[in-house]
Every structure is written in structure tokens, then in C-alpha cells.
Amino acid sequence: MSDSEQRTEVNVVRRLVPADAMAYRARMLDAYERHPSAFTSTVAERGALPLRFWEERLAPGEDTADVVYGAFDAGGLVGAAGLSFEWRERARHKATLFGMSVAESARQAGFGRRLVLALLEHARQRPGLRLVQLTVTEGNDAAQRLYERCGFQPFGVEPLAIALDGQLLGKVHMWCDLLQPGHLQG
């Protein structure tokens, strides 16, 4: 896809490719900066990584370790979320949703839901995959409700999961069974 085609995408959710790496990096660094309690990674840790890290995360192909989808409005990339696939034989039936971010300017436009549903659909197409799991910081009720509307169920809380500014925050663990009907309702 050419740069001019990417610039004209509006209200689109699609899989990101290596050419999107700079925009993806900027989106995520902004998210780490504005919402540090939502992420385990810090802006300093991820900002120090070379562009190659971001490009590799967006590698094309059907059997990659990660896939990332992006949401675009007239201003460009406004949201992103990814799936990381287990490589170990006994855990290959699982994937982890990571890095969910929607820019402040694009919130309440349905991008978050569309990103999650696109990832779940992608997961359903991957042979042998049975469930997607994620964590959400305890107290982030809006994010937890979004995930629940998309078919995720909480199964426990990891206490003291992340340290942020002298506080220890818990993470709610959630999962979605890809074989359960009704999880892709509009």
C-alpha cells in the first residue's frame, strides 16, 4: 500500500504492516506516556528500542509471533492492539491481546471495539487457536467493560502486578473462548 493510499484511509481497521512502524511507535509511545497505569512497559523502555523492533512486530505472514491491527481516521493511526501467539507446544492454543490503545481524540467512536473484534476474528482464522487472554489494570472499568462486551470473562486478579510511582496495582486477567458463539455481535 502506498503512502498516499494510507493517508486516505478513514474509519478503517486493518492489520498493520512494517510501513506503519513509525506511526505505530508514535501511537504506543503516546499511550505509554498518557496512561502509564494501563501498560506494563514504560515509555522510556519502549522509546529506547530501535525502529526495527516495531517493524518486526508488524511482519506480514500467517504464522508470525505477533499481529497488530490499527484503527485509522482522517488524522491517521488513532488506535492499535495486537495479539501475541504462544510458540510452546502445550500452549499453542492460546494468544494474548496486548497494547490496546485508542487516542483521546478518537475515543467513543467505536474504534476500541472494532479493534478487539478484528483481533478475535483474526484469532479464529488461526489453526489450533482456542482462546485469547489479556490483562487490564484493576480499576480501569471502561476497558474491562469493553472487553466483556466483546466476550471476555474475568478469571482472577493478580495482586501487586505492576509498580507505578510507588503504588502496586493489580491486573484483572480475562479470557475469551473462541469457540463460544455470540462473541462477535456488532
Rank of each mutant, 00 (worst) to 15 (best):
Y69N: 00
Y147L: 03
S101I: 05
G110A: 12
A95F: 05
C176G: 06
V12P: 04
Q180K: 14
F85R: 07
R34C: 01
V17Q: 13
Q167V: 14
Y32S: 03
R126E: 03
A71Q: 10
E5A: 15
L134P: 00
R145A: 15
P127G: 04
R149V: 03
E158M: 09
F85K: 04
L49A: 08
V17N: 07
L146I: 12
E89M: 09
V12W: 06
F72C: 14
S41E: 09
G61P: 09
V102K: 04
L97W: 07
F111G: 15
V17W: 15
M28V: 02
H93P: 01
E62L: 13
F111H: 15
A31D: 01
S84E: 08
E33R: 15
W175S: 14
V13C: 09
Y147D: 11
E89N: 08
D30G: 12
Q6V: 14
G82C: 09
P50K: 12
W87H: 04
L169D: 05
N140L: 02
V157Y: 08
Q6H: 10
Q108S: 15
A59H: 04
S37I: 01
A74K: 12
V136L: 01
L58A: 07
T8N: 12
A81G: 13
E55M: 12
D165G: 14
A161I: 08
S2E: 14
V68W: 07
